[in-house]
């Protein structure tokens, strides 16, 4: 009651419990439950994976195995904005590594991690399917194409 954060968490776990109740016993329930859990919590911390494992009657190592196999699942809290720089063949040839390096430098964060203020998560991705615009990156759902490293500070400033 006095602790607001716990109350919030409790609500989330109740939501997740409802998802588990609806899916339990159906074949292939694990992935959809994990996807829902990620959309509720934003990521899949150990406690949530344990909750899913116990709820569905599977082992933690099974949940963790799925969580680490699929790129769509994340184990750490994500930044407010998730940046994905394409390192697919076309983008790479067009210099996307330099774009990625510049982002890492500007944000002072290694690839795959989140800035200290929690604003940005910087990821390298496979082909985003916009090779015509190479080199490409996405921030959230926004696509930025034909990038040069020098454009980065101005783009970041918009967020």
């Amino acid at each position: 009651m006095s602790c607001n954060c716990c109350g919030k968490d409790q609500e989330k776990y109740q939501q997740l419990q409802a998802v588990i109740d609806a899916k339990k016993g159906t074949k292939g329930a694990l992935m959809p439950v994990m996807q829902e859990a990620q959309s509720i919590f934003g990521y899949l911390p150990k406690e949530v994976q344990l909750f899913i494992a116990e709820g569905l009657g599977v082992t933690l190592s099974e949940v963790f195995g799925v969580a680490t196999f699929y790129a769509q699942f994340v184990l750490e809290p994500q930044g407010e904005h998730v940046i994905g720089v394409c390192l697919g063949t076309a983008c790479y040839v067009k210099g996307s590594q330099a774009v990625l390096d510049r982002l890492s430098e500007e944000l002072d964060v290694p690839v795959g991690k989140t800035t200290k203020d929690g604003k940005f998560t910087l990821n390298a991705t496979r082909c985003l399917g916009a090779c015509g615009l190479a080199p490409v990156m996405m921030i959230g759902d926004e696509v930025y194409g034909r990038l040069t490293p020098d454009e980065i500070p101005a783009i970041l400033a918009k967020y």
Partner: peptide, 19 residues
């Protein structure tokens, strides 16, 4: 018991306990 499982993907895959 199920304390070891497949962790990760592709070349980085390892058989290990979770986390």
């Amino acid at each position: 018991v199920g304390v070891i499982g497949t962790v990760g993907r592709g070349f980085n895959t390892v058989i290990a306990p979770a986390f």
